[in-house]
Design a protein around this nucleic acid. Structure first.
Lengths: 210, 210
DNA sequence: GAGGAGATCAACCGATCGGCTGACGGATCG
DNA sequence: CGATCCGTCAGCCGATCGGTTGATCTCCTC
């Protein structure tokens, strides 16, 4: 197996040097280049096509988040590992949404960094428990639907662009009943029209989970 | 620190026995009880209030998923760890959405089981890389918006229940222009009314990320 | 510099929606 | 047994929507 090629991105030369030293001290890694901001990172990543990019999020001039978004948009092959100082960093979730493969703590033991990079290069996701928790709570949907079963059915059809008349036919009820259900669910959701009702439905997790 | 109290839930006596043996062979754990299906699990969990519940998902008579949902609904204190046989189990994500704290592989080394349970008891999320990946891809939003900037603004207002006339006032344009934008975005999204447009907006990640 | 996309506006018309009022039977719960 | 919620239905009416056709202007790209 060939070395894993790396691109280091951090605005602090000290950090970059430290990382370079670490990864050059063990076999299996090659540091292709270093970048000090997001723009440079995108340019170098495009040019050098590294296996893994180690990227700090907080940098002057072209944030790490933007760089991740841009690289993802370009369909870059490189796996992106976010380097954070604190575990509780609120930027982590957006970074992962933007396309980061995982994240590592800057003060993690060296062996953790090595395994993290290897995992990422192999296409696996690298997450600490804290980040995993945040992901879980982002996915988890707490709210129980305040709508009656029939109202949910009507709302689901509304979300598909079905007219009241068509809904009536589909559910084997009269158009008047459909309108009654709609009025009720409008009140319950605190809206006045079907478009806003659909929006509330998604916000509250009533819709969207086929 | 007191022992971590456990409830074991699996339809196979052999598996339950094996787990009990494992956890009784080391200090720090107390197996309170065993349940063979979801219903029994909920009853015992309510009665005994364990710290951690180890639960199989596939069981006859009251699936594990239903049990998790029910326990979550009741606000049970116990952390729920799902026991799966295969990592690729498609039930894992729903289980986590339902309220599971994490999951463990049945054939994982004993030490992994122990640390997993300890982590869960401490409130941390226990996930394998494969599950983490699936979580990440569930959160990740791929599609770039096919809508023009102005069209997105109109759609966002529509989702809030704003009428065309109000949108016009809000954006300092005429009602006619609002209707033009709507017609265009309807076409682009492949829908025929504002309610379905809002739904598409959420499905495609255009709406919903304030 | 032609073409395309975005943003702006107008007028018309039929279809649909949403509000209002009122009603009835069943289920569940205290 | 009465209250409350769910699900069903009706008619009326003004407001709003969506489709259509057609137009002007700018900006960007090829």
């Amino acid at each position: 197996m060939a070395d894993i090629s790396l691109l280091l991105v951090d605005d602090h030369p000290v950090v970059r040097n430290g990382l370079r030293g670490l990864f050059e001290s063990v076999p299996g890694f090659t540091v292709l280049a270093e970048a000090s901001d997001g723009v440079e990172a995108v340019a170098l990543a495009t040019e050098l096509d590294p296996d893994v990019i180690l990227m700090d999020l907080r940098m002057p001039g072209g944030s790490g988040l933007d760089a991740i978004t841009e690289l993802t948009r370009r369909g870059a092959r490189a796996k992106i590992l976010v380097l954070t100082t604190w575990d509780s960093d609120t930027d982590t979730l957006p970074a992962i949404e933007a396309g980061a493969t995982g994240y590592l703590l800057k003060d993690a033991p060296a062996t953790d960094l090595f395994t993290g990079v290897r995992e990422a290069a192999a296409g696996r996701t690298v997450l600490s428990p804290a980040v995993a928790s945040r992901l879980v709570s982002a996915v988890r949907t707490p709210a129980a639907s305040p709508l009656a079963a029939r109202e949910r059915e009507v709302l689901a059809l509304v979300a598909k662009g079905t007219s009241n008349r068509e809904i009536a036919r589909e559910l084997f009820i009269s158009e008047a009943t459909v309108k009654t259900h709609l009025s009720h669910l409008f009140t319950k959701l605190g809206v006045t029209d079907r478009a806003a009702a659909v929006a509330k439905g998604y916000e509250q997790g009533i819709l969207g989970r086929d």
